[in-house]
Design a protein around this nucleic acid. Structure first.
Lengths: 200, 200
DNA sequence: GTCTATATATCGATAGAC
DNA sequence: GTCTATCGATATATAGAC
């Protein structure tokens, strides 16, 4: 079978399909996007898409799993640069920088994950939720550690974590690289906001 | 014509349809929801829906416009309780309380507005964006006033406004009244977070 | 690996009886 | 105002020639 729907390996056309589908899914929604539209954006016919992906849902799953794995691996790579005795504040700000940078640089992927996961099969949906939970729990742990150490003072750990996560996720909806804020500058802004939120 | 799609007046069945459609649109998405599903949830056949609404998009528009008008009117009503010489901080915290309360109490409506506006016709979409912009600009004005008065110190007015808005919108995605936080308690939490975000 | 042609299903919406 | 029956369009997906 030549349906290389497994994330990781990719022919040239499969990547073209990924790019086109990602844009269409993120802007118009998964259900509202047709295989004919994806094919037209790539310059082939709808039937030819099935040489590269087994189904429309396979494309969505490919894009979603890749996005979530990228998010997790970039976050973990950032955290790995910290020394073992880093303070909760250092951990929080490092997490936030990676969080903001990802959502600024990968707006379409983030939009897909945040709005189109409902199109996944039940099995793929479960796996996606697990990947997302793994990501979010990392911030929760940092928050709990900071509160336990007495350096964070938040009215509610869970709510504060959600608030920090979500204000970053929203970046994917409006940030444009052509604007007057570079990604590092944007990270600086959110570092300040997050730091204030946990410090009395 | 008996298609009472105009928000405001309503027969018993039309409200049943609104409730069912809101739930289905918010949980499964507008495009993925069929007229037959809505009808089944109400206990009638799909064809009978057209005695109450002219089209599927009419239902979405009814729900969306009502949600956005409720959001605006509740926000404006809250702001109207302030004295004319209220400080920027008082204005901000009042806005945030109404913002959080709405998104905690109207999770499905907020989810609809935030994720399903793409299903609207171009004309209805424009009107919805205008209503949403009117709401968001109110916070922007408060933010600018506080910065101009020297009581708010934010690295970026626009980013800070988005961050406050979005951390509140996210409440609609996870808050459940059965949980261990009442709406007033939740508002207290976000009041603190918002206040910290603007104060150095 | 792309194409044309088509199978099969389901969609939103309408017609007309009751 | 609900129903059954159905239209016309379009969706995903497949078959098979090239």
């Amino acid at each position: 079978m030549s349906v290389d729907s497994s994330p990781g390996m990719s022919s040239a056309t499969a990547d073209d399909i990924r790019r086109a589908a990602l844009r269409l899914f993120a802007t118009g929604g998964y259900e509202a996007t047709t295989m004919r539209e994806i094919a037209a954006a790539v310059g082939i016919r709808a039937a030819s898409l099935y040489n590269h992906f087994g189904s429309k849902e396979d494309i969505l799953w490919d894009l979603t799993s890749t996005a979530l794995e990228d998010l997790n691996s970039e976050s973990e790579a950032s955290m790995a640069t910290l020394s073992p005795d880093a303070t909760p504040t250092e951990k929080l700000l490092t997490f936030v920088r990676a969080h903001i940078a990802y959502h600024a640089k990968n707006g379409e992927q983030a939009t897909l994950v945040n709005m189109q996961m409902g199109g996944l099969s039940k099995s793929h949906h479960r796996k996606s939720v697990a990947l997302r939970d793994r990501y979010e729990s990392r911030l929760r742990s940092i928050m709990q550690e900071g509160v336990a150490a007495g350096v964070f003072h938040v009215p509610d750990e869970r709510v504060a974590s959600f608030a920090i996560l979500q204000m970053g996720i929203a970046v994917s909806g409006w940030y444009r690289p052509e604007g007057n804020l570079s990604v590092p500058q944007l990270c600086d802004v959110y570092e300040i906001l997050a730091n204030r939120m946990v410090a009395a």
